[in-house]
Amino acid sequence: MATAPITLVDNSWVRPLSQTLTIYFKEAKYEFLTRLRLRAYSISTITFPLMFYVLFGLVLNQKDAPVGGVGIATYLIPSYGTFGVMGASLFGTASGLAAERGLGWLQVKRASPMPPFAYFMAKVALGMTFSCVVATLLLLLGVTFGGVHLSVLGATKLVAILVAGSLPFCAMGLAIGYFVGPNSAVATINLIYLPLSFCSGLWVPIMFLPKFMQQIAHFLPPYHLAQLALSVVGAGQHESNWIHWEALIGFSLICLGVARLGFHRDEGKTYG
């Protein structure tokens, strides 16, 4: 009865690096294609910040009213840039993860030999890619129609900061994605995303907010990313950039910790 298994698995098997890289690449490529074709994501994450910018930065722009030492068209690029990055990152990670986790698709992938990390990296890469697109388009709009002057170096630095700044929000998205259901994901993200944006001074510049709200803003991660981005164009609250970086890194680590908790909770429930 207890016949020995015919073929044992070779325990020393390690996937060659080139194959691993191919998996990471394809995972990211198809994640990108999936979302690009999903108009609800690709159109809304890109057009909302651009629309706001066109409306408040270009159309309703009063040329003689500088904000934080620079023109409003300049000030609003880092500001709506941060807003756009948050949207692209949160929706790019959380809604997909929540749906795929809740509706069984993640389990199909987990049953395959896919390296789990490739799956998460693909979501992060997606968030960063869309963040880069939003930031670049905002900049192009500003330079072309808003009379914004920025050196090539400055422009590159601004986009780079915004793209790097998508990481904390991708981490936040993964954490959210592990704790919301597939149907409530979008509503939950909006419930966090919109108030957070407003309170961090992304819609109305921070100095126009009441004093107590300015105090609260210091505890909100988008505020710190916006300040980093604003410092590139010479605006903002002129605090030490180190504070902002530290705040963002700390926030990322907390979110990754929460996401990890969610991952293990899931493994415990479905795989435990």
């Binding site: 098997w13 996937r15 069984g104 698709w105 199909v108 049953a111």
Partner: peptide, 17 residues
């Protein structure tokens, strides 16, 4: 993963991308 490379699985799934 080395065991899973020899396994194929078809599971019940509510939604596929």
């Amino acid at each position: 993963a080395e065991v899973r490379t020899r396994i194929g699985a078809m599971l019940q799934v509510a939604k596929v991308p």
